[in-house]
């Protein structure tokens, strides 16, 4: 899986490309989040538009980093999840944990709206 980083307003957006399945992905993801928090960037959007699928280990990676960001006083949301991924979030009830957006603008605004 490839991770590309960009910024919009106060938010750091991570564009993921590939399959989120664990293994080396977990370390790469954790390193990116650690680096962002070290730079005091605590509003993180995970863009799932180009993630073809995710398994339970991939969900664990998302939860781990969500917990890390929340523990640091920040927040993490997801955007552009496919129907397939949305249905996985639904059956695992993670749709109740992760805010999910279909628009980048809405995802970026969610951090200021939550204040």
């Amino acid at each position: 899986m490839k991770i590309t980083q960009r910024e919009v307003g106060s938010a750091a957006i991570l564009d993921l490309n590939g399959k989120l399945t664990g293994g080396p992905d977990a370390d790469a993801f954790r390193d990116v989040f650690k680096s962002l928090l070290e730079q005091n960037k605590k509003h993180i959007i995970v863009n799932l538009e180009k993630v073809s699928w995710i398994n339970s280990t991939g969900l664990g990676i998302l939860i781990h980093n969500y917990n890390t960001v929340r523990g640091a006083g920040g927040d993490m949301v997801v955007m552009h999840a496919s129907e397939r991924i949305e249905s996985i979030l639904y059956v695992t009830k993670l749709n109740l944990l992760f805010k999910s957006f279909n628009s980048e603008d809405e995802a970026v605004r969610s951090f200021t709206a939550a204040r």
Binding site: S56, I61, T92
Partner: peptide, 10 residues
């Protein structure tokens, strides 16, 4: 909040 245990659920 648990990072594991969703495989069978899926």
């Amino acid at each position: 909040m648990s990072e594991r245990g969703r495989g069978i659920l899926i």
